[in-house]
Write a protein that binds this DNA or RNA. Structure first.
Lengths: 217, 217
DNA sequence: GTAATGTTTTACCAACCGGTCAAATTATCA
DNA sequence: TGATAATTTGACCGGTTGGTAAAACATTAC
């Protein structure tokens, strides 16, 4: 046979596994920094260290590469939110959600930027995922937050906007990294950066959502 | 003469003003939704309702268009931060900064996305502006916040990360609009959306930064 | 070993892209 | 009005891009 071309056959050879891995790694690198339309197959092939036709042997089109990448990454990207536990202590849960999201921004910035590029450009390839699985998950967790509010565990607030705020503040450090570095200067943009961010964000959200006594101005 | 080609002559005719305006409006639309590399001159020409060569008569290159756009928009984009007043009441200042940023996200989403695209893709065209004017302005305002902290007007916190948090949470509603809509569903994503966001963010930041008494629970 | 299958390369194509050119058209103003 | 300058257009160009065809090469199964 001459056309296994990306998962058409059920059986995957060792080489298929390896090369597809290599390609997706390269595709992540390129798509994350240039967006879908701004990326070229040649670029990806170059990063992956193989020829363009070879790459197209494993993924028939640029879209197929992008799709495979999204499918692989989306699920794990939502893991932190899934861990959000209704039974846990609200303050601790929110704190550790922020932690986890911030760690992902630090450890997987390319994944963050892959989605950021996609969403920024009106999510042409993942709109269904946003309206389906993502919305479902968020609805579910919003309900959890709502029960916490009703139980007086955290301040009255809109759970959706709370989730948006956590997403945006944490992902900011991955998506807008260049700007953060530019503003902080090389001195403050080193290792301590994430610790500083974590400290600030935890304070902001914990105090911001605390059910507290009267402010002393 | 046959080559006024975009501001080479000092005198601008009425037609020049009008057409350049038209082009930049179209360029904003296109660059904001596709990023620089993802946009084509034909697309911009199409949106502007003129032919490609005609467009290139006013701006010699795609880069020149982008540059002109950035130059025009960057300054006004930073206005809200400039208004940040050292003499004002800290809480009121922060509250109205959030307001203004949120209004800009609502009223000028394309401008927000223009920069988001640019920064997300490592700011190849505006890195100097980030390291120069932007950093300078932020440094200045960070100093203001620091004096407020020292005066005990707001809680102890890192002023830079505070600014990043305000940027990210507010711009999120412009840059990730599709995602926000997808999650909220068509019902909650109408007019009240910005009011809800404003209410939440003001609460978050004001409580989060308040110097308050002991939390109950 | 050899035949069948799986992988890689070379050469290529049509569409698109950024940009040029010269001619045609339109606006300006003496 | 007509001369002159400003604007617009259509035809075009070289390079890039997504993708293909087919043959060469490698691997595996028997």
């Amino acid at each position: 046979m001459v056309l296994p071309r990306a998962a058409k056959t059920q059986r995957r050879t060792r080489i298929q596994e390896e090369k597809e891995e290599q390609i997706l790694e390269a595709a992540l690198e390129v798509f994350a920094t240039h967006g879908f339309r701004g990326s070229t197959i040649d670029q990806i092939a170059d990063v992956a260290g193989m020829s363009k036709p070879n790459l197209l042997y494993y993924f028939r089109t640029k879209e197929a590469m992008h799709r495979a990448l999204i499918d692989r990454v989306l699920d794990s990207w939502l893991d932190p939110l899934r861990e959000f536990d209704a039974e846990g202590n609200p303050v601790a849960e929110i704190r550790s959600y922020i932690r986890r999201k911030l760690e992902m921004a630090r450890d997987f910035p390319r994944e963050s930027r892959l989605f950021a590029n996609e969403v920024l450009q009106n999510a042409p390839h993942i709109l269904d995922e946003l309206k389906g699985p993502l919305k479902t998950l968020v609805d579910e967790k919003a309900e959890v937050i709502r029960t916490w509010v009703k139980a007086g565990k955290i301040a009255k607030c809109d759970p959706y906007h709370l989730i948006f705020a956590i997403w945006s503040t944490t992902q900011h450090y991955a998506d807008f990294d260049v700007q953060v570095r530019a503003v902080l200067g090389e001195t403050h943009s080193g290792e301590g950066r994430f610790e500083d961010a974590a400290r600030f964000l935890e304070q902001l959200f914990i105090n911001g959502l605390a059910v507290h006594g009267p402010a002393t101005v």
